[in-house]
Simulated assay, not measured.
Amino acid sequence: MDRAALERHIRDTPVEGSPAEMRAAFLRLAQAGDAPALPQVARVGGCDGRWFGRGGRPVVWLHGGGYVFGGSDTHAAPARVLAGLTGRAIFVPDYPLAPERPWPAQRDAVRGVLDALDRPDVVGDSAGGHLGLVLGLSHPHLMRRLAVLSPNTDRSGQSTTRTRNSATDLMNDDAQDRRLSDMALGHLRDDDPEASPLLGELGTLPPLFMAATTIEVLLDDTLLFATRAGREGVPLTLRVLPDLFHMWHLWPDATPEGRGILRDVAAHLA
């Protein structure tokens, strides 16, 4: 599948409706064709998930999907590629999903995974990036390095790209992002650091890699966070890629930039 075909697939597969309908649509969207063979479900630290690859210090990938959809099945492609690039085993937890299990169920489930794996490296995308940052801020001793791709970091209104880029981001818009956030985090104030990690004390974070794209809704979430983290002395690498939609890395075989950013993540974790 080339970039044009992928963009048609995204437009033809809207993720909308009830939570169950969104989960089914996002799985169709992520797999973009025949369903791949998946590893058996495993249990780590009380949380189910799947391992991709083997060997080396483990890496935990916290999947995106607004805390409402997504899982080890939707993120199999990038997890497999990252396992190949690093020569390490990647565990993708199937943490609890909202609205059935609102926050902090996700945080608590993944903390159990990190406890069980003895300071793994952590990767997170979108909501999974938010989850990685929250855990990195509250429990930095549980992870060695952290890489986040287009994380949600701010609900306090500082971002301008949440509205400005809603028309250009094929995979996300501000209204949908808020709807998903409200299902999981709606009981938190927007200025609570667990909802907006941008407002937390960032200086204790482990070495951090961040990436986003120029036309996605969450661009400012990354830029604002990177600016504050850098000022507070966090060892930081930032990549901003042009003209790509949110979660572009889900299709590393269709977007050279997707495979490229996974190489950058692998280099950060080395």
Rank of each mutant, 00 (worst) to 15 (best):
R3V: 15
L198Y: 06
D190V: 15
A195F: 03
E194V: 11
N152H: 14
A5R: 11
H139D: 13
L241R: 12
P207S: 09
M171P: 05
R239W: 07
G230F: 00
D191F: 09
E16C: 05
T204M: 07
W251V: 05
L142P: 00
A105H: 06
T214H: 04
T160Q: 11
P96S: 09
R23K: 11
G65V: 09
T160S: 05
A30G: 10
A5P: 04
G45S: 08
A4C: 12
V134T: 12
F245R: 04
D12W: 09
P206S: 06
N165H: 14
V217K: 00
V60C: 05
R111E: 14
A211N: 04
S159M: 02
G17K: 09
F52V: 10
T74L: 06
T163V: 15
T153H: 00
T204N: 13
P207C: 10
Y67C: 09
Q106Y: 05
F209P: 02
L6R: 06
A212R: 00
L238I: 12
S18N: 12
P39I: 08
V110D: 02
A195M: 07
E7L: 12
A229V: 10
D169V: 07
E7S: 10
D118C: 14
P93F: 05
A226R: 00
N172H: 13
A195W: 00
V265Y: 00
D48L: 11
S18L: 11
S138C: 07
L85N: 07
S138V: 05
L208I: 12
R259M: 06
A147F: 03
A32P: 08
M183P: 00
S18C: 12
D121A: 15
Q176R: 14
T168I: 11
P120Y: 03
P206R: 06
A89T: 04
H63N: 12
I215N: 10
R189K: 15
D154T: 10
P206H: 05
D221S: 07
G230P: 00
P140W: 04
H130D: 03
L219W: 00
G233T: 10
L27P: 01
T163G: 10
L149V: 15
S138N: 10
V60G: 00
L146G: 03
T222E: 03
W251F: 13
L6T: 11
D177T: 15
R54E: 15
A77V: 06
E201R: 12
Q176F: 05
T227Y: 07
D2V: 13
N152L: 14
V113E: 02
W103D: 06
E194G: 05
A5T: 14
E257W: 04
P102S: 07
A147G: 14
D115K: 14
W51D: 08
M143F: 06
L146Y: 01
E232R: 13
L269G: 02
V148F: 02
V44L: 03
V15E: 01
A105K: 08
G64N: 08
W51K: 11
R107S: 12
L146N: 01
V123C: 11
T204Y: 02
A5E: 14
A25Q: 03
A76T: 05
F225Q: 03
P120L: 05
A24K: 02
G45Y: 01
G45Q: 03
V240K: 07
V44N: 01
L142T: 12
N152P: 09
A147P: 05
D73G: 08
P96W: 01
A20S: 15
Q40H: 13
R107T: 15
A42I: 10
G46M: 10
L269T: 03
